[in-house]
Each structure stands twice: as C-alpha cells, then as structure tokens.
Design a protein around this nucleic acid. Sequence first.
DNA 1: GGGGTCATGTAATAGGTTACATGATTCT
DNA 2: AGAATCATGTAACCTATTACATGACCCC
Lengths: 207, 207
Amino acid sequence: MATKRKVGNLLALAVMSYLSQRPMHPYELSRTLREHGDARSIKLNHGSLYMVVGQLAKAGYITELETSRAGQRPERTVYALTDAGRAEFRDWLTELVAEPEHEYPHFVAALSLIAALPPSEAVSLLRHRLGRLAAERAAIRSLIGTALAQGVPELFLVEEEYRLSLLAAETDFVEELIEKITDPQAGWGAMWAQFHGESGPPAQVET
Amino acid sequence: MATKRKVGNLLALAVMSYLSQRPMHPYELSRTLREHGDARSIKLNHGSLYMVVGQLAKAGYITELETSRAGQRPERTVYALTDAGRAEFRDWLTELVAEPEHEYPHFVAALSLIAALPPSEAVSLLRHRLGRLAAERAAIRSLIGTALAQGVPELFLVEEEYRLSLLAAETDFVEELIEKITDPQAGWGAMWAQFHGESGPPAQVET
DNA sequence: GGGGTCATGTAATAGGTTACATGATTCT
DNA sequence: AGAATCATGTAACCTATTACATGACCCC
C-alpha cells in the first residue's frame, strides 16, 4: 500500500517533480502548480502545500537551500531536492504508473446505494448526470484545444485525455444503465419499484 | 461543494442507508458493510465508523435508541435514523447520482508527471499496468459471476459493472498511449527522449 | 486451558483544511 | 487615498487512521 511512504500526499510528488528542475520557495511552487494546470490533477491548497513541504524536509527528501528576503516581504525559504528525494520521486512515480490502486470514486458509492431511491427518480437523476457529463467533456476538449493551439505538446495533456476517456466510458455506462432500468420488457423497474411502493413505472407491473 | 455537508465522509451515507432499514449498533453496521460488499465501494475502517456515527449523532441525523447489554459483552448502543437523517440521506444520494464531481485519481496524477520518466521506461511501466488491469477486470468479472449465481439481482452489482467499464476504458487508453509513444513515424519518443538525454532516435524506442 | 479470533469500543497521533495575519503592489 | 489583490506564511481546528484494551467464544 502507498501508505508506507513517509510522505503520502500526492502533492508531495508534484513538489518533488518541480524541485527536480530547479530550487524554489513554497509560494513559487504554489503559483507554478496553478499556472501549469497541475492543480487539476493533484489537489492543491495553500495550507497543505506548506505542510507537505515541511514533511518532505523532515523526511530528508528536500533541503532548505537559502533564506533570502527581498525588500520587506516575508522571508522566502528556498528548497532543493536531495538525492534521497530524487530516488523517492522516481520510485513513487514508477509505482503510480505501473500499479493500479483500488480507489473510491463518489459515483461508485452512489451506485452502490442507488437502490434506495425509487427507480423513476433514479432515472431522472441519471439523465441529469448525462447532461453534466457532456458539459464536462466539452470543457475538457476546449481546454485541450486551446493548449494545443498554444503549442503545448500533447505529451503534457495526456492526463486530460485520460479524463476524457473515462468520461466517455461513464456516459456510455449511464446510458446503458438507464436502458436496463426502463426497458419495458426486461427492465428492473418492476422489481425495484416494489421496494418503494411506487405504482407502475415501466409498462405495467404491479403485484 | 460536498464539503458543505455537516458530515462529509461517504461512510456516513452508508450508515444512514443501513439505518433507514432498521436500527443497529455500530459493530453490526461494520459487519454488515463488510459482508454486503459495500466496503469495496466506500472506504471502511473500524475507527472511522465510530467517528462518523458520533458526527451523525451530533448533527441530529441519527439518535441513540437504546443501550443494551447482552451477557458480559461491552454495551452496545443502538442507533436509529431521524427524520432529518432521512432527508439528508435522500438529498445527498440524489446529489451524488446527479452531479459528477471533480476528483483526483492517482493515475491522473501519475500521467500529469509522466514526462519526468524516460520514455522507454514509461512504456515498460505502462505495459506492466496493462497486465494488472487485466487481472483486476478478471477478478471483478468473477465476483459478479458468483454473486449472480447466488441470486443477487444485477441491480445490486451496478457499481462493479461501472468499475469494469472504467477499467476497460483505461485499458484502451493505455494501449493507445503506448502506441503514441512508440510509433516509429509520429511517436513522441524523439522529442521526449531529449529531455532525458536518452539516445534513442524515434525509430527505435522499443524496449 | 492457552492461543486465536470475534465483538466492542476508546484514546493517541498524524494528516489536512480553514481561518487568520500582514506588508507590498496595483487599480480606480 | 482607499480597495482589492498578491505574496507569504502561521496557527487553530477538524478528520481520519492506528494503536490500545478487554471480555467472550471456539478450537484442539
């Protein structure tokens, strides 16, 4: 399990990645992550970043390089990646690419409990979801399009393309699920509706 | 954002779902969640369950029904869902089904940083991943098969079918990604390898 | 009858998020 | 000049995970 790592937050991976190119101070990391769009892939919030930097320093993966001050701004502590950090970075990234992990997406949880809703309502919620999925896909396509137009190599957009693939698959799945529920012949509506005392949703099913 | 909920942990949703059928005490919830297989969809660990139950009680979504003791075992506190809890449950589940949320799967993070690995290594890791994905798909198919054989209605397996869909999409995506990297004509190998001082011109990035 | 594992829960610790603070720069 | 935003970080508060406790039952 990934919990064996001294620092488990994925933000730490991004930090090490950036520091492997040049030393930076935390705020610069934060800004760069946001600008570079990595914050879409790795949850970033201001407080966590300082926490993670502290953890990395304590673990010996990064080291305080210098503490400069420009004008009267607060001190900026610049950090650099150590050799141990470089090793940890490679090892971790390697594992993340090679080994799928069991995760808990929200929609999986929702599906596991969806039988608690009356089937007709479930169907209308799923239809609503289809609309949202389409919007999200359009947004990502446009994001990719403008990035490509600005000359960003596709290599740096693979994570967005991956998201697109997942969204497409989810869309198909939801459409099929709606079918399965509402099919007048073999649909689950009848059996399902009985849990909830709904009258007859599909063709005609009661008692 | 879902963080506006008084209790944000998805485990709480499962707890409310079970309590909507009959009152239970925490340990019974824990056991039922594991047996029923919901622990594959919603992260469960012992300590968190008691925490969540406490939070739900404080929020007024569940209430302490009785405190019985059988034999000399520790006291078991039985909880029941309140009306507020029933409302919260429906509202939350409704939202989860209807509205996709932005999430941060590990593989997205990995992809966003994959350019930090030399391309030949990335390819071999991705191939390794393909094997793991196949194994996971087989495991889920078998899980579904035995459940169906035992008479579980497909309705209660949709979350596993959803996982299967996602894994299939991911498999396709990874295969295409390998293609894009290794294609001798238009592949990314050349440009990518330059970041890393890898020698391989595009024509032979093969492992 | 001693060693596991089930049943049941509490407490200690670590992790993460939100809120707070404060000088500098820029906008109107 | 006052308002907003940037830049930079600390501290307080919640949440979540791990570790600890302890009596009962079950196996051999």
